[in-house]
Amino acid sequence: MMTRVFALLFALLMLPGAGRAEEVVAALSQSRISITANFDGSEILIFGAVKRNQPTPEGEPLDVIITVAGPEKVETIRRKDRRFGIWINVEAQVIGHTPTFYTVTSTRELADILPPLTDSLWKITADKRILPGMRGLPAREALIRLRKADDLYRTREGVVTLSEDTLFQTSITLPSNIVEGGYTTRIFLLRGGEVIDSYGTTINVQKVGIERWLYNLAYQHALIYGVMALAIAGLFGWGASEAFRILRR
């Protein structure tokens, strides 16, 4: 009997008019980023609107949180300690898949709009997103600390602008020492500490042109690449020597 009541309640909550009164519709200024020789980081504009099939609900204000996560990588983290008077690596730990880049942006201070439970459920802040099961382990804390120091993990509160409770926009800066791959972008719509809708998309970052060519050559035809590197070096050394001889005359 009770299960049936719960099932009914659940079904009601899932009805369009009830549970998803507000939906997010979003777009990016670019869904592909090309790494060229003069690549120096990139800025992506993320913008969107809140779609409603009901008048704007009263009470709790609307907030938007946007996260961008870079390709995941397995890292080795080493710890130094003093042995025989010198500081050496004494311990190495392989840490599972963590994003090489992670940024969280929001309309207001996260403490005000995102209760810990919602955060855990949706894995929004770096603390909840990056290996939450290893919380408290020194290696995991160090990884987050190091990435934060390199500005690869960031939190930017209050940089998403929301106008008329409908239109929102922000820009995300991708660093210049970017890793190739897919950058997962998530947009959350929150009201009263609950995520009422979310949207996900991927930005593809890829080397192009000479960057792509050199990279492929180095990995697929390593010997040719090596010989080419030597030939360039030899030619330049000789060229400079000749040029200086002519100059001195």
């Binding site: 000479i210 390593a222 010997l223 690449y225 090596g226 590197a229 030597l230 330049f236």
Partner: peptide, 22 residues
């Protein structure tokens, strides 16, 4: 050494080398 690194580790950056050697 260059050849060995390029062949086994793929760690020779021609563009970097080019700027350094100029």
């Amino acid at each position: 050494t260059t050849l060995l690194h390029a062949y086994t580790n793929h760690t020779v950056d021609v563009l970097l080398a080019f700027l350094l050697l100029v």
